[in-house]
Design a protein around this nucleic acid. Structure first.
Length: 636
RNA sequence: GCCGAUGUAACUCAGCUGGUAGAGUAGCUGAUUCGUAAUCAGCAAGCCAACGGUUCGAUUCCGUUCAUCGGCUCCA
C-alpha cells in the first residue's frame, strides 16, 4: 500500500503504485483535467510516472507557475515532431524553454516565417490527436543506437552520465528528454511560432549553423492574445520608431552605428547631463575630460592593444600609430599621474562624459541600444583600501537617487573572480570583501555570479527594470586591480611611503545613448516635463494674435521654458491634436479673451483645460515641477 | 562577422507571373480666421539602396556590395 500526502495534509491510500493521474482522479475528474505534472520531494514528475513509495505530493495545475514551462517544453516537442513530419531529413538538437516561450535548434535547410503556417498546421493536428507523452527509460547504449542517425543527439547522450536515460514518445515521435511533460498533446492549446534565426551548435562559430525556430505557448487563448498585445505595445514604443516620429535622432549609412542627434534629441540629452552634473557635484565628484585619440604606446601600456585591438579604430599619422579610445580609463590614469597625491587627497572622484568608439560587429548594431560611438558617464575613484566600502556605498546611493528620478527599479549582481584572472588571492579577497561589505551595508538583496567578474577585478552590475518590465544592465561598478599597477600610480601615506591606490570605474547611465533609448521606451515618448524637448507650445487662435503670442512666448522662454509657437493658419482642433500627439506637456491657447484679460488657457496632457491662468502662476508651477524633476504629469 | 528577412516620395506602406510607379500623412500654394485630438481644394515630390548580369526591355529575375530588422556571438 502506498500513502500519498497532499499539501493540505490529507492522505490518500492506494493499493498498488499509483500514477500522478490516479491521484488527481481520486480528487475529481475536473481537477485531473487541469493537472499538468506533480512535484514530489522537490522534483517534478510526469502524471504518467508511477510512484513507488510513500510520498508528499503536490499536483501542479495549469494555474501553477512551473506548469507553463512544462507545457512549453512539451510544445517544443510537438513542434519538433511537426518539423520532422514535414522535413524528414532534419536533425534535431536541443529544444529548451526560454523566458517568453521555447525554441528548438534544428539542423535543416533554412526555413523562413512563410513556412510557419504549415508547421503550425501540422502542430495543430498533433495537438488535436491528444496523444499521450510516454516516458521510457533506456540504457545509454540503447539510446545511442536509437539516435544513430542524429549526430547531435549522439553527442548529447555520450556526455550524459552512465545509467538509464529517459526518452519521451508521443505517437510516432520520440525525443531524448529529461522531462517532465504534460500528460498529452491536447494540453497545448494556444501556441504560435514567433521567429526563426540561425544559431550555432553549442554556440560555437566553427560548428554547424542550425535553424532556431522560436515559439510561444499558453494554456489560455486570452493569455496568448495578451502577450501578442504586449509585443505590439513594445513595438509601438520602439525608440527607433519614436526617434523618427519625435525628430530626436537619426542614423545614416555613412556612419553605421553612430547616431546623429537632432535639436530635440539634444534638448533631452542636455537635460539628462545637467541633472547628472548636479547630482555628481553634490556627491563630491569633479569633472574631467580626456582626448579621444591616443598613441599606441598608451594602449600597449594599458593592455588594450593586446586584449581589445579588434574592437578599436586605429589610424597612422606621421608614422605613429594611434587608436580612438574604446574606454576612458587610460586617459584617467594619466590625469591621476600628473602630480603627486597625498593620502589626504583621497578619495578622488573624477567623472568624465567620455566619447568612446568600439567597432562592434555589424550584426550587433541596434538603434541606440547597440552603437559604435557612445558616451559613457564614467568616473574613476581613487582611494585607499580602507575606503572601499564607504566609496562603493556612496556610488550605490547615487545610483539609487538617479534611477529613482526616472522611476526605474533596479537590482544588483555581484560578479566574483573568474578562472582567468590576474592579481593575488589576497588582493581579490580584499576587493571582493570590500564590495560585499558595501552591498551588505547598503542592505538591498543582490545576486552573486561566481566567476563572472572581469579578469582585472570583481564588479557590481546594476540592472534596471523599465515601465513594461524589461530589464537592462546600465550601471556597473568595477574594481580594477590592474591599471594602477600598469601605470604605477601611487599616493604618499601617513608613513611618508608610496602606496598603491585602489581604483574603481563606474558608470550609472552606462552609455548615455543607450540610456536615452531606454528612457524613450520607458516613457513611450511621453517625457516628464523636465526632460521634454518642447515643454510648452503656444497656439494662437487666429493670425491677428500672432504678434501678441510671440511676445508671450519670448517672455516664457526668457524664464527658462523650452517653448514653441504653432502659428500656422490651421484650426485650433488640429493644432491641439498635433501638440497632444507630440506629447507637449503644456499646450497654451491664446484667443481674444486671453489677450483682453492678460491670462492664458492651458491644456495639459491628461486632457484637462484650465482657463484664466496668469502667466506668473503657470511659470511658478512649471518651474517648480521642472526643478524638482517630477515624473508625473504637470497640472496647472 | 554568421544565418534569415527587408530596402519603392520626408514618413508609413500598395505595386499578381518583367512593358520605367501609386495611396495616406507630412510639404508647398490658395481659400477658410476657426475656442481645445484631423477645414477644404489644388500642386509638387521617387536613378524603386548601389553596382554588375540575363533580356528587345528590369522596381520586378540572377549575382555582388552597402544598410536596416530578427536572432547567434558580444556587450555600455
Amino acid at each position: 500500500m502506498i500513502n500519498i500526502t497532499l499539501p493540505d495534509g490529507s492522505i490518500k491510500h492506494f493499493d498498488d503504485t499509483p500514477k500522478g493521474m490516479d491521484i488527481a482522479l481520486s480528487i475529481s475528474e475536473g481537477f485531473a483535467r487541469n493537472c499538468v505534472a506533480l512535484e514530489m520531494d522537490g522534483a517534478l514528475l510526469d502524471l504518467n510516472q508511477p510512484i513507488e513509495k510513500d510520498a508528499m505530493v503536490r499536483l501542479l495545475t495549469v494555474k501553477d507557475e512551473e506548469s507553463l514551462e512544462i507545457m512549453r517544453h512539451s510544445a517544443a516537442h510537438v513542434m519538433a515532431q511537426a518539423v520532422m513530419r514535414l522535413y524528414p531529413e532534419a536533425k534535431l538538437t536541443i529544444g529548451p524553454v526560454v523566458e517568453d516561450g521555447f525554441y528548438y535548434d534544428i539542423d535543416m535547410a533554412p526555413v523562413s516565417e512563410e513556412d510557419f503556417p504549415k508547421i503550425e498546421e501540422e502542430m495543430k493536428k498533433i495537438v488535436n490527436e491528444k496523444v499521450p507523452f510516454i516516458r521510457r527509460m533506456v540504457s545509454k547504449d540503447d539510446a545511442l543506437h536509437f539516435f544513430k542517425d542524429d549526430p547531435y543527439k549522439q553527442e548529447l547522450i555520450s556526455e550524459l552520465q552512465d545509467g538509464t536515460i529517459s526518452l519521451y514518445q508521443q505517437g510516432d515521435f520520440t525525443d531524448l528528454c529529461r522531462g517532465p511533460h504534460v500528460p498529452h498533446t491536447g494540453m497545448i492549446k494556444s501556441f504560435k511560432l514567433m521567429k526563426v534565426s540561425g544559431a550555432y551548435w553549442r554556440a560555437d562559430q566553427t560548428r554547424a549553423q542550425l535553424q532556431r525556430i522560436y515559439g510561444t505557448a499558453y494554456f489560455d487563448k486570452k493569455e496568448l492574445a495578451s502577450y501578442l498585445h504586449i509585443l505590439e505595445e513594445a513595438r509601438k514604443r520602439d525608440h527607433r520608431r519614436l526617434g523618427v516620429q519625435f525628430d530626436l535622432f537619426s542614423f545614416h549609412d555613412v556612419a553605421p552605428g553612430m547616431p546623429f542627434f537632432h535639436a530635440k534629441g539634444m534638448a533631452i540629452w542636455n537635460a539628462l547631463l545637467d541633472y547628472w552634473r548636479e547630482e555628481h557635484r553634490a556627491a563630491g565628484y569633479v569633472e574631467t575630460k580626456t582626448p579621444i585619440m591616443l598613441d599606441r604606446n598608451l594602449w600597449e601600456k594599458s593592455g588594450h592593444w593586446e586584449n581589445y585591438r579588434e574592437n578599436m579604430y586605429t589610424s597612422t599619422i606621421d608614422d605613429f600609430d594611434y587608436a580612438i579610445k574604446p574606454m576612458n580609463c587610460p586617459g584617467g590614469m594619466l590625469l591621476y599621474g600628473t602630480r603627486r597625491h597625498s593620502y589626504k587627497d583621497l578619495p578622488i572622484r573624477a567623472g568624465e562624459i567620455g566619447l568612446v568608439h568600439r567597432h562592434e560587429l555589424s550584426g550587433a548594431l541596434s538603434g541606440l541600444f547597440r552603437v559604435r560611438a557612445f558616451h559613457q558617464d564614467d568616473a574613476h575613484i581613487f582611494m585607499m583600501p580602507d575606503q572601499i566600502q564607504e566609496e562603493i556605498l556612496g556610488v550605490l546611493r547615487l545610483v539609487d537617487r538617479i534611477y529613482s528620478t526616472f522611476d526605474l527599479g533596479f537590482h544588483l549582481e555581484l560578479s566574483t573572480r573568474p578562472v582567468k584572472s590576474i592579481g593575488t588571492d589576497a588582493a581579490w579577497d580584499m576587493a571582493t570583501h570590500g564590495l560585499k561589505s558595501a552591498l551588505n551595508a547598503y542592505g538591498k538583496d543582490y545576486v552573486i555570479n561566481e566567476g563572472d567578474g572581469a579578469f582585472y577585478g570583481p564588479k557590481i552590475d546594476i540592472h534596471i527594470k523599465d515601465a513594461i518590465g524589461r530589464t537592462w544592465q546600465c550601471g556597473t561598478i568595477q574594481l580594477d586591480m590592474s591599471l594602477p599597477e600598469r601605470f604605477d600610480l601611487s599616493y604618499i601615506g601617513k608613513d611618508n611611503e608610496k602606496h598603491r591606490p585602489v581604483m574603481i570605474h563606474r558608470v550609472i547611465y552606462g552609455s548615455v545613448e543607450r540610456f536615452f533609448g531606454i528612457l524613450i521606451e520607458h516613457y513611450a515618448g511621453k517625457f516628464p516635463l523636465w526632460m521634454a524637448p518642447v515643454q510648452a507650445v503656444i497656439l494662437p487662435m487666429n493670425d491677428d494674435l500672432i504678434d501678441y503670442s510671440e511676445q508671450i512666448r519670448k517672455d516664457l522662454e526668457k524664464s527658462g521654458l523650452r517653448i514653441d509657437m504653432d502659428a500656422r493658419t490651421e484650426s485650433l482642433k488640429k493644432k491641439v491634436r498635433e501638440a497632444q500627439i507630440q506629447h507637449i506637456p503644456l499646450i497654451i491657447t491664446l484667443g481674444e479673451k486671453e489677450k483682453e484679460s492678460g491670462t492664458l488657457s492651458v491644456r495639459t496632457l491628461d486632457g484637462t483645460v484650465r482657463y484664466g491662468i496668469s502667466q506668473k502662476d503657470l511659470l511658478e508651477k512649471a518651474l517648480t515641477h521642472i526643478r524638482s524633476r517630477r515624473s508625473d504629469l504637470i497640472q496647472v
